[in-house]
Amino acid sequence: MDTLNTLLLGFISIVLINNLVLTKFLGICPFLGVSGRIDMAFGMGMAVTFVVTLSGILTWMIDHFLLKPYDLQVMQYVCFILVIAGAVQLVEMYVRKFFPPLYESFGIFLPLITTNCAILGLCLFINLWEINSLIEAAVLSIGAGVGFTMAICIMAGIRENLNLVDVPKCLRGAPITLITAGLLTMAFMGFSGMIK
């Protein structure tokens, strides 16, 4: 029961309170780049969720079973980025084989998941928070993906409506998106008192 409680709290905290995009500024590039339409945003969120889950679990295992016992933590970053690049390659091949239309519409953004800070960021945070059980690491990884998907979908919804609004000329495009994101983080700050 106790473990279940910890896992649930961990999940909620990474989705809402420590949302990677809105409080840790990770994954801002796709957040600004892909969030024009809801369906694209959702597809991107799903791809990121998959990659982040896979790489979160793999990097935790590599870190605990290989790097720490042999005192090789200097190699940490190089290993992490290799795992992520491999996972992205896997997703790319899978999507190209089974969902060709989706592959077409993603274009360059699919390989760019490799350089999505949210993924490397989560692997580093798992390491930094000293998560000691594989299940907890897995739950955090999935939660990070869900949080990313949620943030990018909310943003896409707002931006679809933003197209109909008369924004001052100099603020059109990226500036107004950033200001909107700022207001969104303010809303998410309301969650911060939820878990002590």
């Binding site: 500024f25 107004i176 700022g182 983080t185 303010m186 700050m189």
Partner: peptide, 10 residues
């Protein structure tokens, strides 16, 4: 806080 970062950069 994050709010300030986003809005200032915007």
């Amino acid at each position: 806080m994050p709010v300030g970062a986003f809005i200032t950069l915007g």
